[in-house]
Computed example of a mutant assay.
Amino acid sequence: MSRKLIRFDWAMKKLLRHKANFGILEGFLSELLRFDVSIESILESESNKQDEYDKYNRVDILVRSQNNELMLVEVQNDSEIDYFHRMLFGVSKLVTEYIKEGEPYGTIKKIYSINIVYFGLGQGKDYVYEYKGEFIGLHQKDVLIPTTLQKQDFKVEKVSDIFPKYYILKVNNFNDIAKNTLDEWVYFLKNSEVKDTFKAKGLDKAKEKMRYENLTDEEKKMYDRFQENRRIEISVEYTAKLEAKQERSIEVAKTAIKKGFDSETIAELTGLSIEQVEQLRSAKD
C-alpha cells in the first residue's frame, strides 16, 4: 500500500524550510551522497522569491550542513537547453558569495549541486548521474593527487574532494522498480508516493509530514493552485506539440502533392486523413 503525498518541489518551497521538517531533506541527501547529512540551517536562495503565479516550474533550496558544507538542491520541471551552464553558474555564485573578502581561498566551503530534473537533460539512459572531476595527465595519463600537506590541511584524499560535486537525477528515466533505498527516494520524487515497504532515510517523515490532509486550509488552496497551474502548462505544451506536428505533416503533404503522390499514400505517410489531403490538393488547385 502507498499513500499519495504532496509534490517534493512544492514541499521544498513551503514545508522543508522549517526546522521540524529538516529530517526529510536530511534523509534524501544522506541517501544520495552516501554519508549522513545533518542540516545546520536553510539559507536564502532564489526560490524564496514569490512570483506572480506561484507556478514552481523551478525551485531550489540551499542547505548548510553541520560540517559547514553547502548543498544546493534544485528541481526543474521545464526543459532548458542551457541547464548544464546554469548548474555551473549557480555553484560559481555560491563559491564567491560564501567567502569573505580577505579570507584565504582554502576557506571555500565544499559545495554539492543536486539537480532533480523532469525533462530529457542531455543523452543518457540512467536516472542518477554523479560528476567526478579529476585532472588526468595528457601524456602520462596519471591522476593528479594532493600533496601530503594538502591532504592534512584540507582533509581530502583526492583533488576532486576540493571541487564542487554535481548530481543529476533524471526522474522520468526511472522505471518505478526500487532496488535500493536511493531508488525509493527517486520513486517518491517521480510519483509523490511512499510505499509501506520503503526504508530510505527521511521517507518515514515525508509520509507523515507531507500528507495533503495535514496542510492548513490556506496551504491546501495554494497547493491546489500549483497543481492546476501544472496541469494547464502540461496541456498547453502538449497542444503546442500537436500543432507543430500537424504543421509539419501539412508541409510534407504539400510537397508530396507537388510530386504527384496519391492521397492514400500521403495520408499514410503524414497521419493526415484522406479528406485533409484532398482539401490541401483542392487549395493547391
Rank of each mutant, 00 (worst) to 15 (best):
P104D: 04
K55A: 10
D217A: 09
Q150P: 01
D161H: 07
N175M: 11
Y53P: 03
L269Y: 12
D183S: 11
I108Q: 13
A200E: 08
S249V: 02
Q76S: 07
I24L: 03
S41M: 06
K245F: 09
Y56G: 12
S235I: 13
D82M: 11
V75A: 07
K170H: 08
K209V: 14
R248T: 11
E247A: 08
E278Y: 06
N214M: 06
Q227G: 02
L33I: 06
D176C: 14
Y212K: 03
D36S: 12
K209I: 12
N21S: 09
K141D: 09
S160T: 08
V143W: 02
V277Q: 03
E130C: 07
A200H: 05
T148K: 00
E40K: 14
E74I: 14
V117I: 14
E31S: 08
L280E: 05
R231I: 15
E193I: 05
L215G: 03
K125M: 09
I257C: 01
K158I: 01
I81G: 12
V186P: 03
K132F: 01
V117D: 06
I145S: 05
F119D: 06
Q140N: 12
N48D: 15
V91Q: 02
E80N: 14
Q140H: 05
K14E: 14
M1G: 11
I257D: 04
Y166M: 06
Y223W: 06
D204M: 05
F261I: 01
E101F: 08
A178M: 09
M87P: 11
D217Y: 04
V236C: 11
T239D: 14
F22D: 05
E268M: 11
G106I: 15
S79I: 12
L25T: 04
L15V: 10
S160C: 04
K49Q: 12
S263W: 00
R225H: 14
K258V: 12
V73R: 01
I250S: 02
L5P: 02
R7W: 01
D183G: 12
A20N: 09
A256H: 07
K209F: 13
K158H: 10
V159I: 10
E208P: 00
K259S: 14
L94N: 04
K109S: 15
N229G: 14
K110I: 10
D126F: 02
K49G: 05
Y98C: 02
K165M: 08
L25P: 02
Y212E: 08
D82C: 12
L5Q: 05
M87E: 13
K151D: 00
I145K: 05
E101W: 10
K132M: 07
N48W: 11
E184M: 01
K195Q: 10
Y131W: 03
K93R: 08
L32G: 02
S263Y: 06
E275T: 14
V156A: 03
M222Y: 07
T96V: 02
K141M: 00
L62P: 09
